[in-house]
Amino acid sequence: MAEVTAIILAAGLSRRMGARNKLLLPVAGVPMIRHMVNVYRTATCGHVFVVTGHQAGQIGNALSGSGAETVFNANFGQGQPTSVACGLQAAGEATTVLIGLGDQPLLTAGDIRSLLAAHAAADSARISIPAVDQRRGNPIVVPAALRARLLADPRSPGCKEFTRTHPEHVQFHPMASPGFYTDVDTPGAYTALRADMLEDIT
C-alpha cells in the first residue's frame, strides 16, 4: 500500500445541485464526502486532508471519526485553485500528494492504486493525470518537487493553470475507469448514478 497524502477538495458552493449540498447526499449508506474519504483511506496509508469551505461545519460533522483531517479554506469563494493551495500547504513535507474531488463516488480504491502504480512506473518527478480520449480526470498525483511551483503564483495557485502552461512537467496515463471522469453536479446526475450504480459501490 502506497504511503501517499491525499487532499480531497470539498469547499465548493454546490450551486448546481440546488438547495442540497451534494457532498452530504448519501452514497453507500454514508454522506458522499465520507464515502470518498473511505475510498482514499483504503487506497493509501497516509494522511487524508479534506479542504472545507461552504457548510464546513456540516462537512466536518459528516467526517467525525473517519480519520480525515479537515482544513478550512477561508477563501473558498474565490474558486477551486485556492482550495488546492490550502490543501498543499496543509500537506507539509509529504513526498507524494494525491489531489482529488469530493464528488467522484464511482472512483474506487483500485482506481487510485492503478494511478499510483502508473505514476511510480513512469517519471515520478512529473505530475500524473489520468486521461481517456484526450479527457483529463481526477485525482492527480503531485510529486514533492513541484508543490512549490504550484503555489508560486498567488493570482493563480494550484494545478489547472500550471499543468497547461508547463506540459514538460506533466504525464498522462490511459485510465478507462469511469470513476476518474464522473462527478455529481446536478440532481439529475445524482439520481441517475444512484439508480444505476451507487447502491452497488462498496
Rank of each mutant, 00 (worst) to 15 (best):
N61L: 11
L193A: 02
G100I: 03
H47E: 14
T44L: 07
H47G: 10
R136P: 02
R113Y: 05
H169M: 08
H173C: 13
M1Y: 06
L193E: 02
F72K: 13
Y181L: 03
A10W: 01
A192P: 12
I112S: 02
G53V: 09
R34Q: 01
D133T: 15
M32D: 03
Q134W: 09
R194S: 15
F172E: 13
I8A: 00
F172I: 07
H173T: 08
L107W: 02
L24D: 03
L88I: 06
V50M: 06
I59V: 10
P143K: 05
R135A: 15
L193S: 06
A131L: 14
M36T: 12
N61R: 13
Q58W: 01
R16W: 12
V84Y: 12
A2F: 12
L88V: 07
A118L: 12
I7L: 09
V39E: 00
T202F: 04
R136N: 05
K160P: 10
G137L: 04
A122G: 13
Q78I: 14
I8M: 00
L9A: 05
A192K: 15
L106R: 08
A91P: 05
S83R: 04
R194D: 14
F49V: 03
G53A: 09
Y181E: 05
L98Y: 00
A144Y: 08
A121R: 10
T165S: 13
L146G: 00
I99F: 06
A2Y: 12
T202M: 08
F172N: 11
V97N: 07
A10Q: 06
A125W: 10
V37L: 01
I127T: 04
Q78V: 13
S83H: 05
A131Y: 12
F180A: 09
D200A: 10
G67T: 05
T108M: 02
T96R: 08
V170P: 01
A118H: 11
G67Y: 00
R164L: 10
V30N: 02
R34D: 02
S14H: 02
S156D: 10
A74N: 13
P130L: 06
A152S: 14
L193D: 00
L24R: 07
I129E: 05
G12K: 00
P105H: 06
N38P: 06
E3F: 08
A10L: 08
L24I: 11
A11N: 00
C159Y: 09
L13Q: 13
L198Q: 10
A189Y: 04
P81H: 06
